[in-house]
């Protein structure tokens, strides 16, 4: 079954309930000094931030450091923070930059046995479905930026204009890279089956 990817709910993302305050409402409350609103905002986005940070750092411990850095960075914007796009669009470049800094910092220290263990644990992935294995083979041939675009679009559910803002790319570039990636998947003999009705 085909569906319009622009209206889908991103898998693995806990969308706020219908009567829950929006991110914009929460940010307005935080600007008024409401710490409870920050708590709600934090719990709504912490998993996404932590998992994104793990994607960038490849290390769950570093990802938790990046999680703290990112939310403290957001916190310092209050009072006076104004949300001009989806919050993920604001958080994405912060997570990316903090992750790069964390990796650089980690590389300066010799790995202790504990960090080696945690790194090995992070490499242990559960068995993938056959579809996922096929997709992984094809994705490996795509540039990292394009793979990241696919993940942000179809796993995290960012819209195209939000992707452009988050990745600081022209909208046309985002569209053409996504089209290229999907076309590659569609034309590859391993993954063309996924496009069949």
């Amino acid at each position: 079954m085909m569906r319009d990817a622009t209206t889908m709910e991103p898998p693995g993302t806990a969308a706020p309930e219908a009567d829950a305050p929006s991110d914009a409402d929460l940010i307005a409350a935080i600007n008024r000094g409401d710490a409870g609103a920050f708590t709600t905002l934090y719990h709504r986005h912490k998993s996404w931030v932590a998992n994104l940070a793990r994607r960038f750092t490849g290390d769950p411990d570093l990802a938790l450091d990046v999680l703290q850095d990112t939310f403290l960075y957001l916190l310092r914007k209050f009072p006076g923070f104004q949300l001009t796009a989806q919050l993920k669009t604001f958080l994405y470049p912060a997570v990316r930059n903090f992750s790069i800094a964390a990796r650089r910092k980690a590389a300066r220290y010799q790995a202790s046995p504990e960090t080696v263990e945690s790194a090995l644990a992070s490499l242990t992935t559960p068995p993938m479905s056959s579809d996922a294995e096929l997709v992984a083979q094809v994705l490996a041939r795509l540039p990292e930026d394009t793979r990241e675009l696919l993940r942000l679009r179809f796993v995290d559910g960012l819209k195209l204009d939000e992707l452009a803002l988050a990745m600081d790319l022209p909208l046309g570039t985002v569209k053409s890279r996504l089209h290229y990636a999907l076309q590659t998947l569609r034309s590859d003999p391993h993954t063309t089956i996924l496009f069949e009705p």
Partner: peptide, 8 residues
């Protein structure tokens, strides 16, 4: 395809 990407 979306499910496969999520499973990765």
């Amino acid at each position: 395809l979306i499910r496969a990407l999520a499973a990765l």
